[in-house]
Nucleic acid binder design. Structure first.
Lengths: 156, 156
DNA sequence: CGCAATTGACTGCCTGGGCAATGGTTGCCA
DNA sequence: TGGCAACCATTGCCCAGGCAGTCAATTGCG
């Protein structure tokens, strides 16, 4: 039933540790790509979130990225100053500020996306397609499991 | 040959995004376990690194966790103040400070480890053993791929 | 042997994110 | 209808971590 045991548990087989390292190293590898365009990885994530229609407001972005709401305000501030997004008060709900990508914002987001795609494709040279698909599938499942646990914890 | 395409790429199939979310959510779920023992997740990682014999000095810990050297100094400061580790000047290389776990430090590390194991086992209820093993295997492979790219980049 | 490059530990500085509190707005429901 | 909870956006505060630079000790190479 139980998967991990006290004697076998170690960094190399810990999902938490592996996720941490993959995130850390991946981040540091890809960051130069963003830096070349003058933005941060988090900013790009936010742009993509808006571009993909997953988010239309500040709060949406924060939720979609599991990012702090306060930090998101400042994130949008920076992107607005760079002329990548615009804020406009929603007419139907005056609490909300709708975010929209400018032409520049969309262009930057897509340029970065294409570079990122190319970077991952290069990195994954030597992997079987089936392996990658399996990895993505299992990581999605893990993400779902964690998400469920989180919302369950929130309810309790 | 290429795995990702411009039309199909999206957050849900991006390994970077998945790793980020898994790391973030996993971290926030497990953090209370550490908080109950009065330490942080990073501190526990460092303790485990020493306990497992993967690190014997401050620099070792920094390397093993891909953690900033400066931050590691302060991390060890905190753990020393809590009485979990001791620093002692190495006799053969007087630059080095050898780190050793105290009885308290070891006890805390192991208590947390056991709780983490239990937490993951609970979380993974409903997963097939083979699935978990496959996921770990593929994440290890990804970690290795990224590590290689990193050291390669360092050399260039 | 001697000098340059490297390494370990540490420090100051700065940025970015987590957290809590606030003000304004809306929906709900007694 | 009045009041209350939820929600959006924003701000101030604090802390951890990344970065660059310092000092001492060590290694390596000509």
């Amino acid at each position: 039933m139980a998967f991990y045991t006290k004697s076998e548990f170690g960094p190399d087989c810990s999902l938490g540790y592996l996720a941490r390292r993959i995130h850390q190293i991946g981040q540091s590898l890809i960051e130069p790509v963003f830096a070349a365009e003058g933005l941060s990885g988090t900013q790009w994530s936010a742009l993509m979130s808006i571009l993909a229609g997953r988010a239309a407001t500040c709060a949406d972005v924060a939720r979609d990225l599991s990012h702090d709401k306060g930090a998101t305000t400042r994130l949008v501030d920076a992107m607005e100053q760079n002329g990548w997004v615009t804020r406009s008060r929603a007419s139907d709900d005056r609490r909300v500020l709708n975010l929209e990508l400018t032409a520049d914002g969309e262009a930057v987001a897509i340029r970065c996306r294409d570079k990122i795609i190319e970077y991952w494709n290069t990195l994954l040279t030597g992997w079987d397609r089936a392996e990658i698909e399996k990895l993505i599938e299992l990581m999605q499942k893990l993400r779902t499991t964690l998400d469920d646990a989180l919302t369950e914890g929130r309810r309790a």
